[in-house]
């Protein structure tokens, strides 16, 4: 009996010890400045791998620790609206505008762009390849009632997609129009699996390309398909808990030469083309 209790006790102690080592980590840094920056961003900046190369450089240079919360643009902006994030990096100018106008977001800075593309099954059942415009391409899909997978999550890409439907004077709906309610990567996987069309940013598509069977870029190049990323800080005058100094330093880094070099070269070696283009003059 004694031995058994000792074993149980030891097991408990090990688990308890793990509790304290597990939770002690965040307090070790000296509290000279608030080193935690919460970055709320769209999934594409993370899923494309850009943040994985940007953040370590910034953290090393500045001593900050960036906590990236990668959600859709809609959710990221909502976090800014509630003061739950310090800096936002999103790609839906139309949804960003109210935040800037109402003063929740400041230091609103144009950062970079790439473009959206319409992808779909290789045999292109709706024949969108030679469309005159992105809206016309969506019109053909709707006409043929070909399967279209929408993000349906208020993300930047979803917002853009709704803009395009509106420009085509169409109200998508019916069994051919399905909302995944998931991120870009998941939506592309579903679209490839179900042989449907979808609107995606180019960075995420290139990253996933090798796993997407029988899917290719079917329409690209329209100026309405610009995908523009802005970065902004959350206004400390509205939310006193915001780490404004950190947000400003982060934005300054993104605009600096070392930040810009990373952004403009990222993806060249892996995809033969950069994934993002700088908009900083």
């Amino acid at each position: 009996m004694k031995r058994k209790s000792i074993i149980s006790l030891a097991l408990c102690l090990i688990l308890l010890a793990s509790l304290f080592t597990g939770c002690g980590q965040p307090k070790e840094e000296p509290a000279v400045k608030n080193i935690d920056i919460i970055l709320a961003t769209t999934t594409s900046t993370r899923d494309s791998g850009l943040l994985d190369v940007l953040l370590p450089v910034f953290e090393k240079e500045s001593g900050y620790k960036v906590k990236t919360i990668a959600v859709g643009t809609g959710a990221a902006l909502e976090m800014g609206n509630k003061g739950e994030a310090d800096v936002l990096m999103t790609h839906a100018p139309a949804s960003e505008k109210p935040l800037v106008d109402e003063g929740y977001a400041i230091d609103y800075t144009l950062l970079m762009h790439n473009d959206y593309i319409i992808v779909g099954p290789t045999n292109d059942p709706a024949g969108i390849k030679k469309s005159a415009s992105a809206s016309a391409a969506l019109g053909l899909i709707a006409n043929k009632k070909s399967l279209f997978l929408s993000r349906g999550d208020k993300s930047g890409t979803h917002t853009k997609e709704l803009e395009l439907w509106k420009a085509a004077s169409l109200q998508p709906g019916g069994s051919w129009y399905q909302e995944t309610g998931s991120g870009m990567g998941d939506t592309l996987n579903i679209a490839a699996e179900k042989k449907g069309y979808s609107l995606t940013d180019r960075a995420t598509y290139l990253n996933l390309k090798q796993n997407l069977k029988n899917m290719e870029v079917l329409y690209e190049g329209d100026t309405t398909l610009f995908n523009i990323y802005h970065v902004m800080s959350v206004n400390p005058a509205k939310f006193s808990k915001v780490n404004y100094a950190g947000a400003k330093d982060f934005i300054k880094f993104l605009l600096s030469k070392s930040g810009q070099d990373i952004i403009t070269t990222y993806g060249k070696d892996k995809f033969g083309q950069p994934l993002f283009f700088s908009d900083v003059k």
Binding site: C12, S18, G22
Partner: peptide, 12 residues
């Protein structure tokens, strides 16, 4: 980390 968090949560 998985071990630590889930282990501690179980103990508690």
């Amino acid at each position: 980390l998985t071990m630590q968090i889930s282990g501690a949560a179980t103990v508690l």
